[in-house]
Design a protein around this nucleic acid. Structure first.
Lengths: 236, 236
DNA sequence: AGGCGGACAATTATACGACGAATGCAATGT
DNA sequence: ACATTGCATTCGTCGTATAATTGTCCGCCT
């Protein structure tokens, strides 16, 4: 009887259940219908109540639901969701690729990354500089078709986030990675990225020259362009 | 035999266990000694394994630990922690009030809040404007000893974050609140906040005038001053 | 008739016990 | 010395039972 979904990646039952429920919640599957009870979830997925409870507890930890006796488990308003949780963000970006969400996320990037570049200009050590330079080199190589453009782009931005030497900025690492990953098909199909490498180079040079102000404005220009692109497209 | 810690706030056993374990982890209690087994945790706290597992699962959801059979549960490196989780941030700020952490957090605020103010200048509706004005008024009142300065300050900043009309910015709501809450005893004991109200007023006026640029720079100046304060103190 | 209080029921919270699966480690044999 | 095998440990999963909480509803009192 048990579903025995051991074929799924992650192997672990609780994890797969968490994923399924998380996705269902962010796709608004329980906006009208009430969230099922533990017993119902278990029956529907062919899992025991222990597994169900652990998955629900993890959803609770991420702010997606809250549970009380007699009331049942209820989906919390989206404002209470922990958007910076990698899982939650992943589910959100996967659900249907909303341009609106992409715009909002890049509005965040335009705040974070310029400041990260400014901090990096001050705090980056030799390893950080090397990593940034490497990311840039890979972007240039990708331009010539010799490397993966997405990976290179991600590496570059992540290198700067890490070079800021601030754990809060480092936190955006996985977020930027997943967001870039899902947004690339959008931004890249619109415009050639010929200018992009130059802009990235400007950022890298400013950081290498330890010029905080220049690094900040270069990065702001870079992401600002992406935002303009999205706004232009979104306003259609 | 069971500890019956029903006197604790939050009432719920799993929650209190989560809190205890979370605090222990961020205070580095398991940096040397290995993380205990589920059975050990249960025995130590006088709780069943179910509760233990659910608490550990929540820690897993927040990125603090990872578990594998035979290997046991291990504390993940701090870089993997979900710093933007309200619980995690709370535990961190509570642990011993590190000036370094406060500085790093305000380095984040100096990225977020000016941009939020700029967005608010564009997107704020009448309710948002009213809330911002109210926060400012309360700060002024607090200046005269007629209101709680901390609450007023928090309300003001939160109002701007919400006015940005971007869920990612709204996310910082609880973070700024808790951080301000714990940092107030630090920043407030150093300098009188006479100038502070004026700076806040400048931000509010710029937003009311729908002047993004002015709002951004005013907010940047405000938090920049806080940062300078911390840097001056931290550099002793 | 209307408000109020208590019984009832539904649902999560907690607990206990058992078995399975994975895996690091050691013993063992070649 | 090395590969293989067996073992012990620990998390993973399951099932069931009981407690606690609280919304709902019914009946009683005013």
């Amino acid at each position: 009887m048990a579903a025995r979904m051991t074929g799924m990646p992650g192997g672990n039952l609780t994890r797969t259940t968490l994923d399924t429920l998380g996705r269902a919640i962010v796709t608004g599957e329980y906006d009208e219908t009430p969230f099922p009870t533990e017993a119902e979830i278990g029956k529907a997925h062919g899992i025991s109540r222990s597994v169900t409870r652990e998955a629900v507890k993890m959803l609770t930890a991420k702010g997606l639901v809250s549970a009380r006796p007699r009331q049942g488990t209820v989906v919390r308003p989206a404002a209470a969701w922990n958007l910076f949780d990698p899982d939650v963000l992943h589910w959100l970006l996967d659900r249907k690729f909303s341009v609106e969400l992409l715009r909002q996320f890049n509005q965040l990037r335009v705040a974070i990354e310029p400041e990260a570049a400014a901090l990096a200009a001050v705090a980056a050590d030799d390893d950080d500089q090397a990593r940034i330079a490497d990311g840039l080199a890979r972007m240039a190589a990708a331009e010539r078709g010799e490397d993966d453009p997405l990976e290179a782009d991600i590496d570059f931005h992540v290198a700067i986030l890490l070079a800021a030497k601030n754990p809060f900025y480092a936190q955006f690492r996985e977020m930027v990675a997943t967001a870039l990953n899902t947004s690339i098909r959008f931004t890249n199909t619109i415009v050639g990225r010929s200018a992009s490498v130059e802009q990235h180079a400007a950022v890298a040079e400013a950081i290498a020259a330890r010029d905080s102000v220049a690094a900040r404005s270069a990065m702001r220009a870079l992401i600002g362009d992406v935002l303009d692109l999205i706004d232009a497209r979104g306003a259609v």
